[in-house]
Protein backbone atom coordinates (compact mmCIF):
# COMPACT_ATOMS: atom_id res chain seq x y z
CA UNK A 1 0.00 0.00 0.00
CA UNK A 2 1.38 3.37 -0.98
CA UNK A 3 2.26 5.60 1.95
CA UNK A 4 1.65 9.36 2.03
CA UNK A 5 3.05 11.70 4.68
CA UNK A 6 0.96 14.78 5.48
CA UNK A 7 2.76 17.63 7.27
CA UNK A 8 0.72 20.64 8.34
CA UNK A 9 0.28 22.47 11.64
CA UNK A 10 -3.47 22.73 11.08
CA UNK A 11 -4.85 19.69 12.85
CA UNK A 12 -8.16 19.83 10.98
CA UNK A 13 -6.49 20.11 7.62
CA UNK A 14 -4.46 16.98 8.38
CA UNK A 15 -7.54 15.14 9.66
CA UNK A 16 -9.66 16.01 6.63
CA UNK A 17 -7.09 15.03 4.04
CA UNK A 18 -6.15 11.91 5.95
CA UNK A 19 -9.76 10.78 5.74
CA UNK A 20 -10.07 11.69 2.07
CA UNK A 21 -6.93 9.83 1.11
CA UNK A 22 -7.54 6.82 3.34
CA UNK A 23 -10.83 6.37 1.59
CA UNK A 24 -8.88 6.08 -1.65
CA UNK A 25 -6.86 3.28 -0.14
CA UNK A 26 -3.64 5.05 0.82
CA UNK A 27 -1.86 4.61 4.10
CA UNK A 28 -1.54 8.04 5.72
CA UNK A 29 1.18 9.19 8.08
CA UNK A 30 0.85 12.56 9.78
CA UNK A 31 3.03 15.18 11.43
CA UNK A 32 2.32 18.68 12.70
CA UNK A 33 5.69 20.35 12.40
CA UNK A 34 8.78 20.01 10.19
CA UNK A 35 10.94 18.35 12.85
CA UNK A 36 8.37 15.65 13.51
CA UNK A 37 7.70 15.37 9.79
CA UNK A 38 11.34 14.85 9.08
CA UNK A 39 11.57 12.04 11.63
CA UNK A 40 8.59 10.24 10.12
CA UNK A 41 10.04 10.73 6.65
CA UNK A 42 13.28 9.03 7.69
CA UNK A 43 11.63 6.23 9.63
CA UNK A 44 8.75 5.33 7.31
CA UNK A 45 10.06 6.28 3.86
CA UNK A 46 6.70 7.35 2.44
CA UNK A 47 6.05 7.41 -1.33
CA UNK A 48 4.74 10.99 -1.37
CA UNK A 49 4.98 14.06 0.84
CA UNK A 50 2.21 16.64 1.12
CA UNK A 51 3.66 19.71 2.77
CA UNK A 52 2.29 23.03 3.98
CA UNK A 53 4.39 26.16 3.37
CA UNK A 54 3.67 27.99 6.57
CA UNK A 55 4.02 26.22 9.82
CA UNK A 56 5.65 27.67 12.92
CA UNK A 57 7.74 30.00 10.79
CA UNK A 58 6.47 31.43 7.50
CA UNK A 59 8.90 29.46 5.36
CA UNK A 60 9.17 26.18 7.24
CA UNK A 61 7.80 24.21 4.32
CA UNK A 62 10.37 25.63 1.91
CA UNK A 63 13.17 24.91 4.35
CA UNK A 64 12.02 21.33 4.76
CA UNK A 65 11.77 20.75 1.01
CA UNK A 66 15.23 22.24 0.48
CA UNK A 67 16.70 20.04 3.21
CA UNK A 68 15.18 16.90 1.70
CA UNK A 69 16.53 17.69 -1.76
CA UNK A 70 19.95 18.53 -0.41
CA UNK A 71 20.13 14.94 0.79
CA UNK A 72 19.43 13.75 -2.72
CA UNK A 73 16.06 12.43 -1.67
CA UNK A 74 13.76 12.63 -4.69
CA UNK A 75 10.48 11.80 -2.97
CA UNK A 76 7.67 13.58 -4.85
CA UNK A 77 6.54 16.64 -2.89
CA UNK A 78 3.19 18.36 -3.25
CA UNK A 79 3.32 21.75 -1.58
CA UNK A 80 0.25 23.62 -0.48
CA UNK A 81 0.01 27.24 0.53
CA UNK A 82 -2.61 29.61 1.73
CA UNK A 83 -0.38 32.66 1.56
CA UNK A 84 0.28 33.66 -2.02
CA UNK A 85 -3.16 34.95 -2.87
CA UNK A 86 -3.16 37.31 0.06
CA UNK A 87 0.28 38.74 -0.54
CA UNK A 88 0.06 38.89 -4.28
CA UNK A 89 3.36 37.06 -4.20
CA UNK A 90 3.52 34.49 -6.87
CA UNK A 91 5.19 31.39 -5.56
CA UNK A 92 5.90 28.71 -8.00
CA UNK A 93 8.03 25.71 -8.50
CA UNK A 94 11.63 26.76 -8.48
CA UNK A 95 14.47 24.26 -8.60
CA UNK A 96 16.43 26.01 -5.92
CA UNK A 97 14.04 27.87 -3.64
CA UNK A 98 11.02 25.63 -3.94
CA UNK A 99 12.24 22.23 -5.04
CA UNK A 100 8.85 20.54 -5.19
CA UNK A 101 6.90 18.67 -7.85
CA UNK A 102 3.56 20.45 -7.51
CA UNK A 103 2.51 23.70 -5.97
CA UNK A 104 -1.11 24.43 -5.08
CA UNK A 105 -3.20 27.08 -3.42
CA UNK A 106 -5.24 26.08 -0.39
CA UNK A 107 -7.99 25.08 -0.25
CA UNK A 108 -7.44 22.43 -2.85
CA UNK A 109 -10.55 20.73 -4.20
CA UNK A 110 -10.72 17.01 -3.57
CA UNK A 111 -10.57 16.05 -7.25
CA UNK A 112 -7.49 18.13 -7.89
CA UNK A 113 -5.73 16.69 -4.88
CA UNK A 114 -6.53 13.11 -5.86
CA UNK A 115 -5.42 13.76 -9.43
CA UNK A 116 -2.11 15.16 -8.24
CA UNK A 117 -1.60 12.25 -5.85
CA UNK A 118 -2.33 9.70 -8.58
CA UNK A 119 0.19 11.37 -10.84
CA UNK A 120 2.98 10.51 -8.41
CA UNK A 121 1.77 7.22 -7.00
CA UNK A 122 1.31 4.70 -9.69
Amino acid sequence: MAKILLVDDDKDFVEINKMLLEKEGYKILTAYDPTEGYKVLKAEKPDLLILDVMMVEPDDGFAMAQKIRKEKNNIPIIMLTSVSKVTGMKFDKDEEMVPVNEFFEKPLAKDKLLKAVKKYIK
Binding site: D10, D12, F13, I16, S82, V83, K85, V86, K106, P107
Partner: peptide, 10 residues
Protein backbone atom coordinates in the same frame (compact mmCIF):
# COMPACT_ATOMS: atom_id res chain seq x y z
CA UNK B 1 -5.37 36.59 5.69
CA UNK B 2 -3.82 33.28 6.60
CA UNK B 3 -5.48 33.23 10.02
CA UNK B 4 -8.89 33.91 8.48
CA UNK B 5 -8.55 31.44 5.62
CA UNK B 6 -7.39 28.54 7.74
CA UNK B 7 -10.66 28.08 9.68
CA UNK B 8 -12.71 28.49 6.51
CA UNK B 9 -10.63 25.81 4.82
CA UNK B 10 -11.19 23.47 7.76
Amino acid sequence: GHELKAPLGA
